[in-house]
Design a protein around this nucleic acid. Structure first.
Lengths: 344, 344
DNA sequence: CTGAAAGCGCTTACAG
DNA sequence: CTGAAAGCGCTTACAG
């Protein structure tokens, strides 16, 4: 590979001048600029990334820390990742994707070695063990997911409280009085997946406020367990007329379960989920849903991260931003046929 | 951050000695080794990745080039990516994930700048425009997917011909004589997605050899188009008793379509697909399938790539390896109820 | 078994 | 407007 020395020689200038033409960090005569640019083309010169990183203390790489946990729904992650990756490239950064189970160690490795200028953390838990490492590293970080303590961090997440309330309100407004919520598996809660209880607690509070019943349950994440779970659930709640799904695997499994039981939606049961529209179209999920906007969250996180990396103003206040959920109507909800309570 | 100079000073040795202790590239006295290791711990020293890359010409990073194309099924990609990422880390490499639409340019960028020691190419097309760039770069590369010309490359793919034959044989052995194959959208073929025609052509040939009818069609990749397509398909082939799905979106959409038409599988229609078991369990796909083994392919590709990077023996012959498909029985196939031809 | 020195390929004050 | 030189933080022949 050609070096900047080769370019300088070919253009008849010094290495520093060649460098300045490349970086544009000082004015150069048109003539010199032209000769250097010609040499760059002739030699097919590309700067050595390691050398540049060493000299500038900037790698132009962002770390993307993802965890694929047993009970969590992997494909949703992909949409966040694509939002992150695409906008990063637009802003001139590459993505170092880290999938190790031990996120703290991975984070320490990539920040201490200065491989990355900043990091995006996904699957953030309430008491995420990566956060102390991130804070100690001095490297800017943006989170997707809300931790218990946001101090010193830029945080982006869907407004799960609002999502929970919206789901309850939507069905309550239609006249439903007995609902069931299926959340992610309980393991996710134990791991500190705050989005589970944020939606759940808000939904329960809203149901209470509106004087209706909401049975909140934790589901499963894979077949055959999730199918059996749903079947059992419907056995246990025969009076329920509305189903809230905060669980993608359950949303995918539900149509067959309903079919096998001869239940039609929305005629016999109103159903509303929480996942992205992209997701619904790819996997033929027929239920109305709260849009989770994963790529939008990923994009927001990276924009803020890059802003912070490049402005270097530590006094700039950190942000915690919640994206408002939007309801996508797919016609799977309707007023209940028979009133849940038979009034005299 | 501490540098190796700080470590050397703290340990009372020269920088070169400290470095040798770290790399283990020459013998050191136990005493010196202990002092250096203590200093490393005390200072929390981690080598600067850029400096090391500059000095060794090795970045310890692999490029992973993925493309998320409109008509292709994104979530399947994720499983390959995880196989790649996990085994890379086991072998001491990080992953630079590149999702740019212009793969050639991206490949040129990351290889010319020496950001990566090798690359894994996914979604490889028959006449993939990234391959000339890869060959010119001199950087080792491993492909997932079979291109028209494999010269100088390590190639890994599922044996799609065998998969097509297996699907046909399975249904033919059960007595089916009129089958329909739903492939990926035709766009994928136009882009050079060889896996589509490899499975399709082999299935057609096998059907011919066995004297049965196979109608080969191209499907859609998303709702609502894929649902309409399947419905129309069943209208057009009322005599078919078996359905072969080489199209994940179609597999996800089919259960509702069958339900709406009052068709039961396998009683009225035998169905066999081609996707990973992981996938079937996550998305509740109820059909028997040919396992696509994505993480296994990803792992194989990285192992070979790292072997090639580290041995540096250009005479080592390149490999083209096909993984044999395996049938996972989910009970969605059975002998046809009524013989397709009513014989006198 | 260890150290002083050169070099990897850039960028960037410092001079002119 | 341009150049010579130092420096980023490592590794690795070369000496001893």
């Amino acid at each position: 590979m050609a070096t900047i020395g080769d370019v300088a020689k070919a253009a008849g200038v010094s290495r520093s001048t060649a460098s300045y033409v490349l970086t544009g960090k000082r004015t150069t005569s048109l003539e010199v600029r032209r000769r250097v640019e010609q040499a760059v083309r002739d030699l097919g010169y590309t700067p050595n990334a390691g050398a540049r990183a060493l000299a500038t203390s900037q790698s132009k790489v962002l770390g993307l820390l993802v965890q694929f946990l047993e009970d969590e729904f992997a494909p949703a992650m992909l949409q966040y990742m694509l939002g992150v990756s695409n906008v990063a490239r637009e802003l001139g950064y590459d993505i170092l994707m880290v999938t190790e189970p031990d996120g703290s160690q991975a984070l320490k490795r990539i920040t201490d070695s200065r491989m990355v200028d900043g990091v995006v953390l996904m699957n953030v838990a309430d008491d995420d063990e990566r956060l102390p490492v991130l804070r100690a590293s001095g490297v800017p970080g943006a989170l997707v997911g809300l931790p218990g303590d946001c101090a010193g961090l830029d945080v982006f997440d869907l407004d799960f409280e609002e999502a929970g309330r919206t789901m309850v309100d939507h069905l309550a407004d239609l006249g439903h009085r007995d609902l069931v919520l299926v959340s992610q598996p309980e393991h996710v809660v134990e791991r500190g997946g705050a989005y589970v209880w944020r939606l759940r607690d808000a939904a329960l509070a809203q149901a209470k406020a509106r004087g209706i019943t909401l049975h909140a349950e934790y589901g499963e994440s894979q077949q055959p367990a999730v199918g059996r779970f749903l079947d059992d659930l419907l056995d246990r709640h025969p009076q329920a007329t509305g189903l809230l799904l905060h669980n993608e695997a359950a949303a995918a499994a539900l149509p067959s379960v309903l079919h096998a039981r001869g239940i039609q939606s929305p005629r016999d049961l109103s159903v509303i989920g929480q996942y992205s529209d992209e997701f619904a179209r790819t996997f033929s999920l027929p239920f109305s849903s709260i849009e989770s906007a994963p790529d939008r969250l990923g994009r927001m996180a990276v924009r803020q991260l890059v802003r912070r990396i490049e402005q270097q103003d530590p006094t700039d206040p950190h942000v915690v931003r919640f994206v408002s959920p939007e309801l996508v109507d797919r016609g799977s909800t309707a007023p209940p046929v028979s009133p849940p309570d038979v009034r005299p």
